Amino acid sequence: MLLQAVHHIAVICADYSRSKAFYTDVLGLQVIREVYREERDSWKLDLALGNQYIIELFSFPDPPPRPSHPEACGLRHLAFAVADIEAAVAQLQQKGVSTEPLRIDPHTQQRFTFFADPDGLPLELYEVI
């Protein structure tokens, strides 16, 4: 198998409008395409970060909640690289998003923090210098 890259990450949300606003207005991802799939009563929103397709945001009627705490099996979190973590945290907080205190990765000495999307999906900011 000759893997080349991660193509996209699929996220299912409980409230499509709220999650669309979070990923576009708060995080600043760009809409590539938005499709309503009537047969499934489902929205599919393709989002990019810069020029890279990164997230498929789906809505489905009554999705079950995601177990998250304590550490559940499955996707642990989605991490975004930032150049200035303090500025990124300040921008999130200005938009009403709470973040955990900054931590330092003991292996790389890089700073990082966690926050959550509207459905509690754990997201991370990881400072890359």
Rank of each mutant, 00 (worst) to 15 (best):
T24V: 09
K44T: 13
L57R: 09
P64F: 09
P64D: 01
K20W: 03
L78I: 15
L29H: 07
V128F: 12
R103V: 03
S59V: 07
Y36E: 05
I12P: 00
L123K: 04
D46K: 10
Y23S: 07
R37H: 14
R111L: 06
R40K: 15
I129P: 14
P67H: 03
D15H: 07
N51P: 00
A116C: 09
R40D: 11
S59L: 06
T99N: 12
Q91N: 11
Y36H: 15
V35M: 05
H77V: 00
Y16F: 15
A5M: 10
H69Q: 10
G96E: 10
P64S: 10
K44Y: 01
A10K: 10
W43G: 01
L57P: 11
V128K: 13
L75E: 00
Y36W: 14
A10P: 00
H7K: 12
L92A: 12
Q4N: 15
L75C: 02
T24D: 09
P118V: 02
A14I: 01
E39F: 11
R37F: 15
A88K: 10
G50F: 08
Q109Y: 11
R66P: 00
L45A: 08
P106M: 02
F58T: 04
V26M: 07
P122S: 06
T113C: 15
Q110L: 11
M1E: 11
E38R: 08
S59T: 07
P122I: 07
L78F: 08
E34T: 05
P63N: 05
R103K: 15
L92M: 04
F112A: 07
E86P: 02
P118G: 04
P64L: 07
